[in-house]
Computed example of a mutant assay.
Amino acid sequence: MEHNPQLTSSEVAAMWGAYMQNSMAHCIVQHFAKVNEDTSMTEIINDTLSNTKFVVDQVKSIFEKDQHALPIGFTQEDINSKAGRVYSDLFALRYIKYMASAGTVASAAFLEVLARNDVRELFSKTSAIFMKLYNDSCDLLLKKGTFVRSPTIPPMEKAEYLQDESFLSSLIGRHRPLTAVELAHISKNTETNSIGRTFLAGFSQTAQSQEVRKFMERGTEIAAKHETVFRRILIQDGVPLPTTWDSAISQSIDPPFSDKLMMFQTNSLSAISVGGYGTAIGASLRKDLGGHYTRLVTEILQYANDGIKIMINNRWMEQPPQNVDREALRNRRN
């Protein structure tokens, strides 16, 4: 007998999220392609557009085959083709690198809970194409001398076991030097806030809604504050500060993207930050670092929650696929 299993909740969740993220990224990179003046980036931009379209088309094909409603996602209605440049070409390249990294991680993470062969093939392919895109963008950034490297530390002289619990430090007072793992997470979270701060600064001057503009201004301030916290930790530890992700933003107030798209991108960045901080808490043995991350993640969660309220109130928030409400069905019979 031929076995045709239905999509599981994990498979639906993976594809629904992939459709939303890639339809959004496709719109953003279309604008970058339109204003791009750096010919060395042309191939990477075209590859990005091809990759995001591949994911959207494949999810659409599987959903239609299984008679599953397709998400609205993001379309040409969310792009203003007449808008001029807001961000630099270098920022566009860094965004592609960041997006490719997030796509690779998300695709690989979902593979563990995917059963159907066609869905596993999709996410295996997605992971591979975005990993290649990530490496290509890294190579170009290195060639341009603009890759943002994490701090360096002296080589370890010998391996040894910990002798006592003082390695954990305390919430206040003198702290032992940062480990390479802790430095890696601080660097990654600084990068996330830097790219978010630049993105939101551009959003804040181009958003059409005053409510959205204020939300973006608040997000820019939060990102700058979190960057300052992480950089202060590095300074106190005597670690050389990495270069920043700062990129020039034009004076244009003509929005290249819809307010709906900008809000979704902002909430996606918030979700990535929450995930990054959570991972860092588990990997940081210094108690003061855990205290910082716990405090900062609470602030991001509140900000993200306020963003969701704005999206719901403006009918911009799509309802994710969910289980049947049995109680509501029973009430309809009464």
Rank of each mutant, 00 (worst) to 15 (best):
R231G: 01
T266R: 03
E211K: 15
L200K: 11
V239R: 05
L261I: 13
L269G: 00
M262P: 12
N193S: 03
A248E: 12
T244F: 10
T266F: 03
Q265C: 01
G238Q: 05
V274S: 06
E221W: 02
H226D: 04
S270A: 15
V229P: 01
P240Q: 13
Q251E: 10
Q208W: 08
Q236E: 15
S268C: 04
Q236I: 02
A207N: 02
V274A: 10
S252Y: 14
P242V: 09
Q265G: 00
A201R: 04
S250M: 11
T206Q: 03
T243I: 07
K214W: 11
S252C: 14
T266S: 12
S194R: 05
V239S: 03
N267A: 01
G196E: 02
T279N: 12
R218D: 04
F199L: 13
S258W: 14
Q265K: 07
L200E: 07
L261K: 09
E211Y: 09
F257E: 11
K225L: 14
L261H: 08
K214A: 08
G196Q: 07
T192E: 06
V212P: 07
S209C: 08
N193K: 04
Q208L: 14
R232L: 07
T243V: 14
S194T: 07
K225P: 01
L234D: 02
F215P: 00
S258G: 13
S209F: 10
L269K: 03
S187T: 04
F199T: 01
I233G: 01
R218A: 03
S273D: 03
S270R: 05
A223W: 00
G196L: 05
V239I: 15
I253V: 15
Y277S: 02
T244Q: 08
N193D: 05
L269W: 00
F215L: 04
Q251Y: 09
K214E: 14
E217N: 11
L234S: 02
G238M: 05
Q251M: 10
F264N: 00
S187C: 07
I222V: 15
R231E: 10
H226W: 04
M262L: 11
R213N: 03
F230C: 04
M262R: 09
G202K: 02
S204K: 06
F264D: 00
A201P: 00
G219P: 12
P242C: 12
E221H: 07
G238I: 02
I249Q: 06
L200G: 03
L269V: 01
T192W: 03
S187A: 15
S273C: 06
P240A: 09
Q265N: 06
M263H: 07
S204E: 08
G276V: 04
G275L: 02
P255K: 12
